[in-house]
């Protein structure tokens, strides 16, 4: 039984990742602030394969106790940590608010880094060659008006992932980023149609990024079929140019 810790499980691409992983036999340990009806329904359909813990990732210092000791102790052998939870921050730089910036960095960067610390500790304890996957964003590689702060948080993850791969490779632990293009989820719902169309015009496929292709790429990376892939940024972005 392969156990996966997935943050941001209850909505958007997190829900689709949960469905894909369960269909492939994984057990999903989900974390979100709130339990959505969709996730609850999935739990009812697969009661032994889908678990849930309500946790607010802005509580960086509670991660060891709440996420690991009380939810995924060392006796639960962790196969992968998928860092999917994130909050958006859409504004131009001259309006930057430090409190909002700090809160976003707690959720998007500080907590994920702290979770990686304990995920690696679990993997060392179990002598398990596990996987770490960060959901990054095309905004790191292609600038967009209003996304500088958000992109900065995702760029931090890409740098951390590259160095995680280097540091822990000799213990078999792999770290990769999925660089997702713009997806039709709640996170992008605040963008107007005009803005969305401009974004999609910058892609080769002229379409939003398909959630299933993101989820299935993640499943491929953590399956035994991609053992030599680590330290990479894998773009799943409708060919953004």
């Amino acid at each position: 039984m392969k156990n996966v810790l997935l943050t941001g499980c209850s909505r958007g691409v997190g829900l689709v990742i949960t469905k894909v992983l369960v269909s492939k036999g994984y057990t999903v340990y989900g974390i979100s602030r709130n339990l959505s009806n969709e996730y609850k329904n999935l739990m009812n359909s697969f009661p032994k394969k889908i678990k849930f813990k309500s946790f607010d990732l802005s509580n960086v210092n509670d991660i060891n106790k709440e996420v690991f000791k009380n939810y995924i102790p060392n006796s639960t052998k962790l196969h992968a940590y998928i860092n999917n939870a994130a909050i958006a921050y859409d504004d131009i730089i001259t309006n930057l608010n430090v409190d909002r910036l700090e809160n976003m960095f707690k959720v998007n960067v500080f907590s994920p880094l702290n979770i990686v610390k304990y995920a690696i500790r679990n993997m060392i304890f179990n002598r398990n060659s596990g996987h770490i996957i960060h959901l990054s964003s095309i905004s790191v590689h292609t600038g967009y008006k209003g996304l500088a702060m958000y992109a900065a948080s995702k760029g931090a993850l890409e740098a951390f992932s590259k160095n995680t791969a280097r540091e822990w490779g000799e213990r078999g632990i792999k770290s990769n980023c999925i660089v997702a293009g713009f997806m039709e989820t709640d996170m992008s719902s605040t963008l107007g149609d005009d803005m969305k169309n401009r974004i999609f015009k910058r892609t080769s496929l002229k379409k939003p990024t398909d959630l299933n292709s993101v989820a299935n790429t993640i499943e491929f990376i953590i399956s035994g079929n991609a053992k030599s892939i680590t330290g990479q940024n894998i773009h799943v972005d409708s060919g953004t140019i």
């Binding site: 060392n74 690696i120 500790r121 060392i124 304890f125 000799e170 213990r171």
Partner: peptide, 13 residues
Amino acid sequence: SFDLAELTVRIEE
């Protein structure tokens, strides 16, 4: 340093 990391984890357990 990797051995010490593993030692830390096992002592904590």
